[in-house]
């Protein structure tokens, strides 16, 4: 297939996943912010949201304060934010338009629908009373897109590149969410394991739709190291880093098989997967979760880069 087509499919899936993640981030902040002030007094959930979306610097160039209004405006549609939900949807549709022939009509219609909806969205309505509706519609679009791709695409390289985009973005998002919670959210003088801490961890699980499944796996109350274990090392959890890398390896292996040769991207991804397989959560905490996650984000980017050099340019 054409390198440009592969590249477009890859980024199309990434941007759809990114929009989904942003919607989840806003959702969590909004939920945390509605907690009684006794729990939430000193922390700023909205600032946490900006950090989770990894656009803190860009945000504070535009605003002084991370208020609800400002953050929603910035993450949903601000022009200075190249990774706002609107920008993600625009970019995704631009990519989709450029490779319409490489997609099924179901995929195209999903993207086109959400894009058309986005044209009529008024920021004021979202801030006032339609936030939940809006966020659900974005999450739904991403679900529909994922489902459409999964159900209707031929299992050829088109599909593998689309999946790779989604998984690499998802790995990045999961890692950042964890990192932000671990390092940014909890005010210094709040006790780890205290009331606020507990709500923040449960919200994190909720944001990846994993709160219920957490209880199914651990049958315990939510504890930081268990959440980390769940989202990093448990293969049952589809958003955990190890589960995502399992999938990334599968897609890369299919490509290698199809093309009859493999390269750096396959080797890099396999190394990350092996690392995760050998890791124990106690060790990760011992050596510093933040350090582990930072290095994971770098390695994950490296896979994206080697993939681009190998196939997409």
């Amino acid at each position: 297939m054409l390198s440009r087509t592969a590249n477009n499919l890859f980024w199309l899936a990434r941007y759809m996943e990114r929009a989904d993640n942003l919607a989840r981030v806003i959702d969590v902040a909004s939920r945390l912010a509605s907690l009684p002030s006794a729990f939430a007094g000193k922390s700023n959930e909205w600032e946490g949201a900006v950090a989770s979306a990894s656009c803190r610097d860009e945000f504070f160039e535009v605003y002084k304060e991370a208020t609800r209004e400002n953050v929603i405006e910035f993450l949903v549609a601000h022009e200075a934010n190249p990774n706002s939900i609107r920008a993600c949807i625009d970019t995704a549709r631009g990519n989709a338009r450029a490779v319409r022939t490489a997609m099924t009509s179901e995929m195209w219609e999903t993207i086109n629908d959400v894009w058309l909806k986005m044209q009529n969205v008024k920021l004021k309505d979202i801030r006032d009373n339609k936030l939940n509706d809006f966020l659900s519609s974005i999450k739904e679009a991403s679900l529909r897109f994922d489902g459409a791709a999964n159900r209707t695409m031929l299992r050829t390289d088109h599909f593998y590149f689309e999946r790779l985009g989604m998984f690499i973005e998802r790995a990045d998002n999961t890692a950042r969410l964890l990192d932000v919670k671990y390092h940014v959210l909890l005010p210094v003088d709040e006790p780890v394991g205290g009331g606020l801490d507990y709500f923040q961890w449960t919200s994190l699980l909720r944001s990846v739709s994993a709160l219920t499944s957490f209880h199914w796996i651990y049958r315990e109350t939510v504890k930081p190291w268990l959440v980390a274990d769940f989202l990093i090392l448990r293969r049952e959890q589809p958003r955990s880093l190890i589960a995502i890398y399992d999938s990334i390896n599968q897609q890369l292996n299919m490509l290698a098989e199809l093309y009859g040769r493999q390269g750096p991207s396959q080797r890099n991804a396999r190394a990350i997967f092996a690392n995760l397989q050998n890791a124990k959560i106690e060790d990760l905490f011992q050596n510093g979760l933040h350090e582990f996650i930072s290095s994971f984000i770098v390695e994950n980017n490296k896979v994206g880069k080697s993939l681009a050099e190998q196939y997409l340019l």
């Binding site: 054409l2 390198s3 440009r4 087509t5 490779v99 319409r100 022939t101 590149f161 093309y259 196939y311």
Partner: peptide, 25 residues
């Protein structure tokens, strides 16, 4: 799409030794 052929832009193509090639994965 209907013909089942690749849709190309100029940058997907290059010429070497008077032959035209497309960049693929």
């Amino acid at each position: 799409d209907k013909m089942g052929i690749e849709l190309l832009e100029g940058r997907d193509l290059f010429v070497r030794n008077n032959c035209v090639y497309m960049r693929t994965t």
